[in-house]
């Protein structure tokens, strides 16, 4: 057991949780302050994403750099990001005024993010095998 690495992991995951909480609160505030715009569920999903990623960050950062544990944590963060990114982008933003409602869907961005994340996932999977023995 390496207390130094565990401390580092805990600090990083707390920072992740605080960031996610901050972002979700900002989105929540926008939702309340601008009554025309409805960001249904965005703040909840950002917080959930942050909670899961904080746990996985602990796996990553409580390990020696360039070891397979570090790469495994990184790999799992990418997969979680892929899933939650889909969930976030598939939500719809509604803008409504008297007699007119506009629904904005940004799911098209998912294909862009999918390609970028797939490339990084392949790279991280290779790193797991590179880190065996370290």
């Amino acid at each position: 057991m390496n207390v130094k690495l565990i401390t580092k992991g805990i600090i990083k995951s707390v920072i992740t949780i605080i960031t996610a909480f901050g972002f979700s609160q900002i989105i929540h505030l926008i939702d309340i302050q601008i009554p025309l715009v409805s960001l249904g569920g965005y703040s909840d999903w950002v917080l959930r994403w942050g909670v899961v990623v904080a746990g996985l960050t602990f796996i990553k950062d409580s390990a020696t750099k360039d070891s397979w544990r570090f790469a495994l944590g990184d790999f799992m963060i990418s997969i979680a990001t892929l899933l939650f990114m889909f969930k976030l982008l598939s939500l719809e933003i509604t803008v409504s005024e008297a007699g007119l409602t506009v629904v904005v869907s940004i799911i098209g961005f998912f294909y862009l993010s999918l390609i970028a994340t797939l490339i990084s996932i392949v790279g991280k999977a290779i790193r797991i095998f590179e880190g065996i023995g370290k």
């Binding site: 057991m1 690495l5 909840d44 959930r48 746990g55 796996i59 020696t64 799992m76």
Partner: peptide, 26 residues
């Protein structure tokens, strides 16, 4: 349900602790 995500994060923390206990020695 938010609870499930907290549980997943808790499991990840436990895995992190176990891996640290098994492989990382000062």
């Amino acid at each position: 349900d938010n609870l499930i995500y907290y549980v997943v994060a808790g499991i990840a923390f436990a895995i992190g602790f176990i891996l640290n206990f098994l492989f990382e020695h000062p």
